[in-house]
Simulated scan of single mutants.
Amino acid sequence: MSLRFAVLTLLDIEPGSGYDLKRRFERSVSHFWSASHQQMYRELHKLHQEGLLDCEEQTQAGKPDKKVYSLTELGRAELREWVIQPSAPQKIREPFLVRMFAGHNLSRDEQRDAVEAQLHQHRASLQNYQEQNERVLKSDTALQERYWLAHQTLLFGIEAEKTWIRWAEGLLEELEESVKT
C-alpha cells in the first residue's frame, strides 16, 4: 500500500484541506499507516496534478487561501480499482520485538522495565481505541452502516492491543517467576 491510497480513501469520506486530511489521518489511518505532514502535502499535490483530485481555493479572512481537495471521478475509479485488489499479508515490523530478541543482553530488571514500558503504551492505545469505538457507536446509524468496514479496522486494533497486553502481562509473570527460582 502507499500513502496515495490512504489519501484517496480519506478524501472519499469527505473533501478537505491538507490540515483537515492530516487530522483525519491522525484519528484513523495513522494507527496502522504512518506519514509525515510533508509527505501528506506532497501526495495531495501529486494526486491533484494527476487529475485524481480537484482543488478549490477558499478565501479566508486574515489567512492564506484554504485549498479544499475532493476526489474526481478518475480518483474514485483508481481508488475502487485498488480496493478490489487482494492484499498480501504483511510481516510485523515492531522494533520492540527486535529488542526483546536481543533481550539476553539485559538484566532481569531491565527486561522487566522494558516490558512494563511497552505494556503501559499498549494499555494507553487500547483506552484510546475504546474511546474512539464509543464515539462510533454513538454516531448516526446511517454513518455506522456506511463505514461499517472502516469500523472493523478499529475493532481489529482493539483486539490487537488486547493481545499485546495479554502477551506482555504473561511475559512479566514469567520474568517474576524466573527471579524467584
Rank of each mutant, 00 (worst) to 15 (best):
H104M: 12
A77Y: 02
W167H: 08
Q121V: 06
E173A: 02
H37Y: 15
E57S: 08
K138V: 08
R76N: 02
D140A: 04
Q152G: 10
P95D: 02
L53D: 00
R93Q: 08
K22N: 13
L21P: 01
T163E: 07
Q144L: 06
E116K: 11
H31Q: 11
M1H: 08
D113F: 15
E56S: 10
L106G: 04
S28Y: 15
V136Q: 02
F5C: 03
D65G: 05
Q121P: 04
L44M: 12
A168M: 03
L149E: 13
Q152P: 11
A35I: 11
V179R: 06
G62K: 05
Q118R: 13
E134N: 03
K67A: 00
L44D: 06
I13C: 01
L172S: 00
L44P: 11
R80T: 12
A124S: 11
W164E: 05
L106W: 09
E14S: 06
G18T: 01
E94V: 07
A117R: 15
R23Q: 14
R166A: 00
E110A: 14
N133G: 05
S178I: 01
E169Y: 01
S2L: 02
L143K: 08
P15A: 07
L52S: 07
R93W: 09
L171D: 00
K63C: 01
F101K: 13
L52V: 09
D109F: 14
I92V: 08
E43K: 12
Q85F: 14
S30V: 14
R4F: 01
E145P: 10
A6K: 05
R76C: 03
L119R: 06
A160P: 00
E173N: 00
H31V: 12
Q127G: 06
L106M: 15
F101Q: 09
Y129S: 01
L10C: 03
I158L: 08
S34T: 10
D54N: 09
L154M: 13
K63G: 04
E134T: 06
T153F: 14
E169T: 03
L11Q: 01
R24Y: 07
L71G: 00
N105E: 13
E177K: 03
L172W: 01
A6V: 07
K66W: 02
E81I: 02
S178A: 05
D109A: 14
F5G: 00
L143M: 09
M1L: 05
F96L: 07
S28W: 15
F32S: 14
S125I: 07
R76M: 01
E56Q: 11
Q39I: 12
M100T: 08
R112Y: 12
E176L: 04
E56M: 11
G103P: 12
G18V: 02
A61Q: 06
L44Q: 08
D20Y: 04
G103T: 06
P86C: 06
F5I: 05
M1F: 07
M40W: 13
T181S: 11
R99I: 08
H45D: 13
